[in-house]
């Protein structure tokens, strides 16, 4: 029985690992309302826009953790885990905006204690802003190639097979071009900010 539950818990992780972002979108939509209801009760000082941001970031964080290999298995339901991440995000937002302490609590467990003990500030804020600006300027093909290489960790040969390119040289040349484009975009962005 326990084994079956574990399988259910990790179904979403398997889907993400297989490159099925759609599964995560379904998960996001399915529990969004429940999260808003829960957050509304426990975080009365936050507004709907903050709930939306926290829920989005929690789901994105699950995706990133699975892709980077940091999250391989869940011992709780994905919904619980996502709620914990979103809760941490909301607490961080409250701390940042120096609002009153939140009383949002979830049932005690090890993960909860671990998260509750962590200091929170969003260290990726700058990176997110950079991504927001750079993402639309990078072509679709570049984005896909770079994701295959640097997110899914595929080798040039694997990308060649996956994308059905005739030659590995085409993949290498395209990756070089895309990497340079991305580097230049980051440089332009930083120069604008200065």
């Amino acid at each position: 029985m326990k084994e079956a539950n574990r399988d259910d818990n990790n179904q979403l992780i398997r889907e993400i690992r297989d490159g099925n972002q759609r599964a995560l979108e379904v998960f996001y939509t399915t529990y969004r309302k429940a999260f808003f209801a829960w957050a509304g009760r426990n975080f009365p000082n936050c507004d709907a826009a903050q709930f939306a941001e926290a829920w989005q970031e929690a789901v994105v964080a699950i995706y990133e953790q699975v892709c980077s290999g940091k999250l391989r298995e869940l011992t709780c339901a994905p919904k619980t885990y996502a709620f914990l991440l979103a809760r941490r995000y909301l607490i961080g937002m409250l701390r940042q905006s120096a609002k009153t302490e939140s009383h949002g609590l979830l049932p005690e467990d090890a993960l909860e204690n671990q998260l509750a003990g962590e200091a929170w500030d969003d260290p990726w804020q700058e990176e997110k802003m950079l991504l927001e600006r750079v993402f639309p300027l990078l072509g679709e093909q570049c984005r896909e190639l770079l994701r295959l290489k640097y997110e899914r960790g595929m080798s040039v040969t694997e990308i060649q097979a996956h994308k059905k390119y005739h030659s590995a040289n085409v993949v290498t040349a395209s990756l070089s071009r895309c990497l340079r484009r991305l580097k230049d975009l980051i440089f332009q962005h930083n120069r604008k900010d200065q």
């Binding site: 979108e25 994105v60 950079l130 997110e151 990497l179 440089f187």
Partner: peptide, 29 residues
């Protein structure tokens, strides 16, 4: 170092794509 920053960011492109898709879902809702 600049190239490494680009590779680091390249690893987050999927997350950004997901973020934009979730936002689009939200704006629809």
């Amino acid at each position: 170092g600049r190239y490494r920053k680009a590779t680091e960011l390249a690893g987050k492109l999927g997350a950004q794509e997901l973020r934009e898709r979730l936002r689009a879902l939200d704006s629809g809702d």
